[in-house]
Nucleic acid binder design. Structure first.
Length: 890
DNA sequence: GCACGCCTCCAGGAG
DNA sequence: GTCTCCTGGAGGCGTGCC
């Protein structure tokens, strides 16, 4: 990649990966600088602001500095590995819009005389919802709180007086980003106190490629792509960062001390950076042994403190020293605890570098990323990391992504000797850092790319869900085009209706189609699927909140199949345009570039990150319009998208059948074809492209697929012998381990089946495995761990009012013993005879196990498999039914 | 009081 | 706090029978 800037100090690092991978010498080991970041220091930082003149820095964050009354930009200086602060000098002020004229506003008491009122401006905006120009009054304020958020804010006063307001709920720092069209995550230069985005050179071969591939696309999309390409082509800097983890004393093992009370001392703080710092600060306690320094603490600096205040002081120095600080659950625990504990020990507020929010804990100078929140984001979990981790604990994520575990400890934390404690604490900090460094800083690269696409500052990005990301992305594009951002109620009153009936009670509209599977074993099955079906529909059918049910009479004949909605033929929809851009950029450019053998591996890797980042936005672009918490909620958009998806697959199935192809199953956007001729498949793909304007692709080919009568329930063996399991109980995380193990053994046998003949042998083998497993169950050879059923609590215990599920019963049992449980906690229980029928694993004994219940578990799990093979569980365990089976086991 | 059927809730998964 | 569709286990409740 040749577009790195040659003027960079590290000219040898012209290729971005070199710059990226190697931390600059000057940025290493900057620790042990004295002094904490109190107000004086922050003032010094401010006065140093312009020292960055001319060099390339990356925009990480925009916040509002209440003291200065200005927007504050936080840049990352890759040479120094530090934060550079820049205060707005353009005089930008907070504002919102209203339909009332200045004259009318002057007449409302408390507006012009409001202490935070600045001035009015009459401006012309385009009202996208009604597709017309409007004149509105811009109410400019002196500070964000005067706009809204307080009882007597201007927004509230004007609303009370009957005025309509727009864009009054946007946080000031986001508003600043839109107006300056800043792109967080991108390179900038500060020249003569002006913030200028760095030009990114696009390789000429890429420009040529775009011209060719976008030839048939509308000019509008091509123009937009040219503006967006730098976001994907610009390098991401290596970012100096530190992970931090604290341990707090607790008199009751396993009980997490309350941060607000901060009653107990902080006994250990571990810091682990990506520039060589490994350090643990330990509080000496008279009743705890120091212990012996173990191998795990090699190269680690251990500092003992007698005074907890000193320990905190040094911790705060580290927080000030690094541009980015990582924690796992720091918002709700580590930083919150440090804040309250420090106050308790007599620190002044401005001596603590933390800014505590309602549900966040930020840093005054640097950026705090709470990785627990980032990895809890469902879109990240599912689309960015392919569902590799299922629970969002540090241990589970580290095991899935890093193949590393937390350090085990037998004794409670508070009873560990000091070196043991240090090692335990350090390991957590190490894992936390590694969650951002594995696969060449994949997580960090993703975060920067998400920031660029969403236009969110790093703190916001890592804390918000996908709807927040998409909201911000769309607001930015509205402001760019001078569109008035509609209020949720406006869209709702005009377009709040749906016209289809959902299959599931309580849902708002009809969703996807799932075909009835043809039960049995099917050899040589080709699975076709539509490449991002819903986004394609949004693109080709011009779906957007302003185009669906648009005001034009002549568009009403342009009906969306399966609905009574119509869509605009006169104007390109904004959502349609943006979704098309993201989809096409991913499909046409970056999915291909990620596999392009003619470029370097490092470039391919970068492009793979880009296409994964795009995927996250593309996949969520439909769902948000059906979510009533999304501010641009527009049910007809979501409903139309799903309807067009149904239409596409129905038409394709119809065509396939006409061509004589045998369709044995299909779900939402996929078709399973039994033993189809290759030419027919090619023809069907061509047909879909021509008639539906959607890419139909061969997704995979199964040696054989086993379907039962159940939807979303099958397994298939791929050509290379790998096995694909979908929806079967044997794969679910709440199935007992011993059943899963037997299930895996059975699958292993089935993966070797190549013909009908093989099935007969397999049948015998399966019989043995199931039988063996039952005998072991009967003989109590399985441990409680093997028998445990692990189910997550989805809400607090007291909200289970309608029924008491088994895992809730088990949870209540341990709550009696003083244990705390929270939503998200996994409850492990076993089924026992008598009583409530369940016991929490920690309270159960092996001899009270109800093996009949477990036999039922085995039965239902295997029945799902056996069904399709034309076998029954009863048959497997012998003609005499369960009775005979029991005897056989003895 | 209890078996039974039916409906609902809940968790986990597919797409 | 993106959506709907689907499966299986268990709880909850009314009904009919003894």
């Amino acid at each position: 990649m040749t577009y790195a800037r040659s003027s960079r100090r590290m000219s040898k690092g012209a290729l971005f990966h070199k710059i990226y991978l190697i931390p600059p010498e000057s940025s290493r080991f900057l620790m042990n600088m004295s002094g904490s970041l109190n107000e004086d220091k922050l003032h010094d930082e401010r006065s140093k602001e312009n020292l960055s003149n001319g060099k390339v820095v990356y925009l990480l964050s925009v916040t509002y500095d209440g003291k200065a009354g200005k927007a504050l930009l936080k840049f990352y200086d890759p040479e120094k590995g530090d934060i550079i602060l820049w205060h707005d000098n353009t005089g930008h002020k907070p504002y919102f819009y209203t339909n009332l004229s200045p004259e009318e506003l002057y007449r409302i008491k408390g507006v012009a005389s409001h202490p935070g009122f600045d001035h009015f401006e009459v401006v012309e905006k385009f009202d996208l919802l009604h597709l017309r120009k409007v004149k509105v009054t811009k109410v400019v304020a002196k500070d964000p709180l005067s706009v809204g958020g307080k009882k007597n804010s201007l927004r509230e006063i004007i609303k009370k007086a009957g005025g309509k307001v727009w864009e009054a709920k946007i946080k000031y720092h986001n508003c600043y980003i839109y107006d300056r069209q800043l792109i967080p995550g991108m390179p900038y230069r500060i020249v003569n106190d002006k913030v200028i985005m760095e030009k990114v050179k696009i390789p000429s071969e890429l420009e040529d490629l775009v011209e060719k591939l976008w030839e048939k696309e509308p000019e509008e999309e091509k123009e937009m792509l040219k503006e967006w390409l730098p976001l994907f082509e610009s390098e991401v800097p290596w970012i100096r960062r530190v992970a931090i983890d604290i341990e707090v004393y607790s008199p009751i093992p396993d009980r997490v001390p309350s941060p607000e009370r901060a009653y107990y001392p902080v006994i250990a703080v571990a810091v682990y950076s990506n520039d060589g710092l490994k350090k643990v600060l330990i509080l000496r306690r008279h009743d705890v042994e120091v212990g012996e320094r173990t191998e795990g603490l090699k190269d680690v600096e251990i500092v003992f403190f007698d005074d907890e205040r000193e320990l905190l002081r040094e911790t705060f120095e580290v927080l000030n020293e690094y541009p980015v600080v990582l924690t796992f659950n720091g918002d709700n625990f580590d930083f919150r605890y440090l804040w309250y504990r420090a106050l308790k020990l007599g620190f002044k507020r401005d001596e603590i570098p933390i800014v505590l929010g309602q549900d966040s804990a930020l840093l005054r100078k640097g950026i705090h990323i709470d990785l627990y929140r980032f990895f809890s984001n469902r879109s990240i979990q599912v689309y960015a990391f392919g569902g590799k981790y299922r629970e969002t604990t540090l241990d589970a994520i580290a095991q899935a992504l890093l193949n590393e575990k937390k350090k085990e400890h037998i004794k409670p934390i508070s009873e560990l000797d000091l070196y043991e404690l240090a090692e335990y604490c350090l390991k957590d900090a190490e894992l936390t850092l590694k969650l951002t460094t594995f696969e060449n800083d994949l997580t960090m690269k993703l975060i920067l790319l998400f920031m660029r696409i969403s236009k969110l500052p790093m703190e916001d990005l890592t804390r918000q869900g996908i709807s927040g990301w998409i909201k911000n992305m769309l607001y930015f594009e509205h402001r760019k085009r001078n569109y008035l951002i509609p209020e949720p109620e406006e869209i709702r009153s005009l377009k709040g209706i749906t016209v289809t009936k959902a299959i599931i009670k309580g849902k708002k509209y009809m969703g996807a189609i799932v075909m009835e599977p043809v039960p049995g074993i099917h050899f040589n099955v080709v699975v076709l699927d539509f490449a991002s079906l819903y986004p394609s529909m949004i693109k080709t059918w011009n779906l957007s909140y302003e185009t669906v049910r648009c005001p034009h009479e002549e568009c009403k004949k342009n009906i969306i199949p399966e609905t009574t909605h119509w869509v605009c033929m006169k104007r390109r929809g904004l959502i349609s345009l943006i979704v098309a851009l993201l989809r096409d950029t991913r499909v046409k450019l970056y999915k291909k570039r990620a596999k392009d053998k003619s470029i370097s591996e490092r470039e391919r890797e970068w492009y793979d990150v880009v296409q994964r980042a795009l995927k996250v936005f593309i996949n969520a672009s439909y769902g948000v319009f059906g979510a009533d918490t999304f501010p641009l909620y527009c049910p007809p958009v979501a409903e139309s998208t799903a309807a067009l998806g149904r239409y596409a697959i129905k038409q394709t199935v119809k065509k396939a059948k006409e061509m004589g192809l045998e369709v044995i199953y299909g779900d939402t956007d996929s078709l399973f074809l039994k033993n189809p001729p290759k030419e027919a498949v090619d023809e069907l793909i061509r047909w879909a492209e021509e008639n539906l304007k959607v890419d139909l692709e061969t997704d995979k080919i199964y040696r054989y697929v086993s379907l039962s009568t159940r939807k979303k329930n099958y397994f298939g063996v791929l050509e290379d012998g790998r096995i694909d399991v979908k929806g079967l109980l044997g794969k679910k995380r709440n199935t007992p381990e011993f059943v899963k193990k037997a299930f895996a053994q059975v699958l292993n046998i089935l993966s070797n089946v190549k013909s009908d003949e093989d099935f007969r042998h397999a049948k015998e083998e399966i019989k043995k495995i199931v039988h063996e497993s039952y005998i072991r169950l009967k003989r109590k050879e399985y441990s409680l761990e093997d028998l445990a059923i692990k189910v997550a609590l989805s809400k607090p215990l007291n909200e289970y009012t309608k029924s008491t599920p088994q895992h809730v019963k088990a949870a209540l049992q341990i709550v009696k013993f003083g244990k705390k449980v929270e939503p998200g906690d996994i409850i492990a229980y076993v089924k026992v005879r008598g009583g409530e029928g369940v016991k929490h694993i920690q309270l159960a004994r092996i001899d009270e196990i109800d093996d009949e219940k477990y036999l039922e578990h085995m039965k239902s799990t295997f029945e799902q498999l056996l069904d399709a093979l034309g076998m029954s569980f009863e048959e497997i365990i012998g003609g005499g039914g369960l009775e005979a089976f029991f005897k056989a086991g003895k």
